[in-house]
Amino acid sequence: MKKTTRSILRVSIILSIIILLGVTLWFNLTSDKKTVQVGDESIDFQLETLNGDSIQLSDINSEKGVILNFWGTWCKPCREEMPDMNRIYNEGHDDYEIIAVNVSEDEQQINQFLSSLDEKLDFPIALDRNRDVTKAYQVGPLPTTIAINKNGIVVDKKEYQLTVEDIYSFVEQSTSE
């Protein structure tokens, strides 16, 4: 290539990068979305469950604390934490509900995943087909778990695999007022 052609190409690439960075920065600074933080009010939603029922956060949260567990079938930490959640859930869940929110996978994938587990999960599996709830709660890595207390306030949020102690802590926090 000629020296002038290389110079023009370099300048074009540098200008393109600067423009892209500027546009990205502008969108980030002017966006009115914010991440749901601990202490914020929960965002209501309605989703269909795997068994065809409808589940609405505000209906459940009017009487119970809620633990939202965002997960995917491909997620190994999700697979590893679910049996512990199920065992703790079966110890008694009169004051709270666990909702496992699957992030935009089809029912066949979910059913294959569930059938590969050693035990049946007893808490509801909600289908976030369009990722509306995932986006509303600004969920990034999976698993992400959010505890909402009986007053509808987000009291904890973890973006990693929960230990048994973490799950008990989520239960305790979600049942507080």
Rank of each mutant, 00 (worst) to 15 (best):
E81L: 06
D32N: 12
N69K: 07
E48A: 11
F170W: 03
D122K: 14
K120E: 12
Q108W: 05
L127C: 09
E105D: 11
N151P: 13
D53V: 09
N51S: 15
F45V: 09
E48Q: 15
G72I: 02
K34S: 04
Y160D: 00
L121E: 02
E177I: 03
N86P: 12
D32G: 05
D128P: 14
T5L: 13
Q46T: 14
K120P: 05
C75M: 05
V164N: 03
R87V: 08
E91S: 07
N61W: 01
N28K: 04
A136N: 08
E80Y: 01
E172Q: 14
S115N: 15
P83A: 12
I17W: 14
T175S: 06
Q56K: 15
K135G: 02
P141R: 11
T5A: 09
Q138L: 00
I110S: 12
S62Q: 15
I125R: 02
E80R: 04
N151M: 12
N90H: 06
L68Q: 11
V101W: 03
F123C: 05
I98G: 06
F170G: 10
Y168I: 01
Y160H: 04
L15A: 14
I14P: 14
A126R: 09
I19D: 00
L114K: 13
L47S: 04
K34N: 03
T30F: 10
G52W: 13
Y89S: 04
D40F: 13
V66A: 09
K76V: 04
V164F: 03
I18Y: 07
N51K: 08
F45A: 05
E177P: 08
N111Y: 09
V36H: 02
K64D: 12
R10F: 06
D166K: 02
Q161L: 00
I88F: 14
I153T: 11
L57G: 10
Y137L: 05
L25G: 15
E105C: 06
E80N: 06
K2N: 08
N28T: 11
I148A: 03
G92Q: 11
A147L: 03
N102V: 01
T49C: 07
V171W: 01
I110E: 03
L117G: 01
V103W: 07
D122R: 14
N149A: 04
